[in-house]
């Protein structure tokens, strides 16, 4: 059997296959695309990859991804500094921001508690959150960690640490997706949605 893939293709494949969600098949498709698309496209992709790590860092206050520190949210005088929405990953904040319904500040923990993986409170940005809150001016914290075993425990742990400060602490509601069918929702979500039902 002869190796038909040129060395440059093999090298790119080996990099692409290391990316999350990319298997050998999709890596092959990406390479095929990059070899047939207009030549400036791969060049721009290459530049974007290089400048990504050079320009993007974490905001030193809220740990969202940013090119300026403090980030555009933390430095925006129009945002409500009395509310902080806590997320596990900075990218979750993007989704919340896209709703256009939230005008407070964010705080990314950069993970969740998991003794199985050796991740404790000191590995997350929890002390930083406490310092922000203790700094004053915050009256509400929304704990929007993921509704997983780890995300919920992380929220509970933070809620207990924040408790003595006498703030409003909440979690976003879980339930039936808007525009979805009640019958198509999984049983756990449906049961929780029924428990947390509200009067109309």
């Amino acid at each position: 059997m002869k190796e038909l893939r040129p060395p440059a293709v093999r090298e790119l494949l080996s990099h692409l296959e290391r990316l999350p969600g990319v298997g050998p098949r999709s890596a092959q498709r990406l390479v095929e695309h990059l070899l047939t698309c207009p030549p400036d496209e791969p060049a721009r992709l290459g530049e974007a990859l290089i400048s990504l790590r050079a320009r993007v860092r974490l905001c030193s206050t809220c740990f969202l991804l940013t090119e300026e520190d403090p980030c555009p949210v933390c430095s925006d005088p129009g945002r409500d500094p009395s509310i902080i929405l806590v997320v596990e990953s900075p990218t979750t904040a993007w989704s919340v921001e896209a709703t256009g319904e939230y005008s407070g500040l964010y705080h990314a923990l950069l993970g969740h508690l998991s003794p199985l993986h050796g991740v404790g409170p000191e590995d997350l940005k929890i002390d930083e959150l406490l310092r922000r809150v203790q700094g004053g001016g915050v009256r509400e914290v929304i704990l929007a960690t993921n509704p997983t075993v780890e995300g919920e425990t992380t929220a509970l742990y933070i809620a207990r640490r924040l408790e003595p400060l006498g703030l409003d602490i909440s979690r976003p509601a879980s339930g039936i997706p808007v525009g979805g069918e009640v019958g198509a929702v999984d049983q756990v979500t449906l049961a929780q949605a029924l428990q947390l039902r509200r009067r109309v």
Binding site: P115, G120, P121, T153, L156, Y157, R160
Partner: peptide, 15 residues
């Protein structure tokens, strides 16, 4: 096993 602290253990135990 990892000797996780009391506050964190209490959160896991509560769940």
């Amino acid at each position: 096993v990892r000797g996780v602290g009391g506050h964190e253990m209490a959160a896991w135990e509560s769940q």
